[in-house]
Simulated assay, not measured.
Amino acid sequence: MTTTEILSHLVAFPVLGGESNLSIIRWIADYLRDQGVEYTLVPDETGEKACLHCRIGPATDGGIILSGHTDVVPTVGQPWDTDPFELTPRGDKLYARGSCDMKGFLASCLAAVPRLRVAELRRPVYFAFSFDEEVGCRAGDLLAGAIRDHYTERPAGAIIGEPTMMQPMVGQKGIMVYTTVVRGSQGHSSRIRDEVDAVHEAAHLILWLEDKMHRLIEAGRTDDRFSPNHTSIHVGKIAGGSAFNIIANECRFEWDYRNIPLDDAAKIFADFEAFCCQREELRRTVYPEFSITHLPFHPPVPPLDTAEDAPIVDLVKRISGNSRTGTVAYAAEAGQFSNAGFPSVICGPGDIAQAHRANEFVAREQLDRCDAMIAALAEELSATE
């Protein structure tokens, strides 16, 4: 099957982040089995989701991992002109949810299997396909660790095929998402000095977070490779209280930070927790049961900062035909693969500007370039070192 034909199958699986991906992963597994490729499934603790990895080529050091995710974001509320889960060609563009982010890359990988199987590879190619990337890269550590522990040989690096217009990206921001819950007392609003209003206290915390971002910038914590060039801290949702004249006994807000590699995510959160403890100590003199708690939405996603002179960067420049590197502001699984010992570069077909929106598409030209990159990778891995 061609890349486009495989993509038409993959986009037909409406697997959203957080949902079981077994339907699409079984299709991929069946395809690999039919091609004579042995694979390994890595289930989560529920058994309702699974990563997949496989090796094509000899069990020798120096192979390259091609990695992508099988889940997509929802289409609810988006004004699609076509069925989002049916690949629709229009001119040079192929429309469907996931066509760009990032089933186009998966399709290129799978379409290359017959060629990879007959190539005289001296070093192997690995596929690494995950779940729940769109809800916090929840399987990145699981999959990267499984590959590290399963194979006796050592891969030399990983290419994460997120949409970059086939430009090698050597850096990404990390991300952490929290729900902070503030619990105060209740009473008539006229007694505001005798009670602890959770909404008022949440406002103190939100302003601290905004001020923290500005203080990082003022301290010179910037990286001009990124746009914006600093760690961003953002509160996107808040809820609390029941009426204008009732002191709110609970308020919660959802917030995230996207840290540049220069900034330590744990340090940012530790500073915030220290301020929260100060507020607890102060307000418990009025209401002893006052509390502030934090509920992480997912484990932290680490940033990526691959050195420009790393061998994996030089390799991706050659095989992609693009010598200009860059960085991305979105989070991906590249930082997790890097932390597992696999130097990583993000490089894949499509424009991130088309992702997560109605009428998502990937250009045929981008898929052709990705196919060419994987073919060039096979030539590199077939060459004598």
Rank of each mutant, 00 (worst) to 15 (best):
M1W: 11
E5M: 11
I6D: 04
F13Y: 14
P14K: 11
L22H: 11
L22K: 14
S23P: 04
R26K: 11
W27K: 01
Y31R: 11
D34I: 03
E38A: 14
Y39M: 02
L41I: 06
L41Y: 06
P43V: 02
G47M: 02
C51I: 12
G62Q: 08
G63A: 10
G68F: 05
G68S: 13
G68P: 05
T75D: 03
G77Q: 10
T82F: 15
T82Q: 13
D83N: 15
T88C: 10
P89T: 09
P89R: 08
G91D: 01
D92Q: 13
Y95Q: 08
A96M: 04
S99Q: 09
S99P: 07
C100K: 04
D101F: 01
M102H: 06
A111G: 07
V113T: 05
V113E: 03
P114M: 08
V118L: 03
E120L: 08
R122S: 11
R123I: 06
P124H: 06
F131S: 01
D132L: 11
E133R: 15
G136A: 09
G140P: 02
D141G: 14
L142T: 09
L143W: 08
A146C: 04
I147T: 07
H150E: 10
P155R: 08
G157H: 04
M166W: 09
M166E: 05
M169N: 02
G174P: 05
T180E: 05
R183A: 12
H188F: 07
I192N: 09
D194F: 08
A203W: 11
A203V: 13
H204I: 13
L205A: 07
L207R: 09
W208N: 05
W208C: 00
E210A: 11
K212I: 09
A219M: 02
T222W: 01
T222H: 02
N229R: 09
H234L: 02
K237L: 15
I238Q: 01
G241A: 04
A243C: 03
C251S: 06
R252N: 12
F253P: 02
D256P: 00
R258V: 00
A266S: 11
I268F: 01
I268S: 03
F269E: 15
A274K: 14
C276P: 01
Q278C: 09
V286N: 06
E289G: 12
E289S: 12
T293H: 02
H294L: 12
H298V: 09
P299R: 15
P299F: 05
P300G: 14
P302H: 07
P302S: 13
P303R: 02
L304M: 05
E308P: 06
A310R: 03
P311A: 13
P311H: 11
V313F: 05
V313R: 03
S320L: 10
N322L: 09
R324N: 12
T325Y: 00
V328I: 15
A332R: 06
A334P: 07
N339F: 07
G341N: 13
G341V: 03
I346L: 04
I346M: 04
C347W: 02
D351Y: 06
I352N: 00
R357P: 04
N359C: 12
F361W: 07
R364P: 00
Q366H: 15
Q366A: 15
R369W: 07
A372C: 10
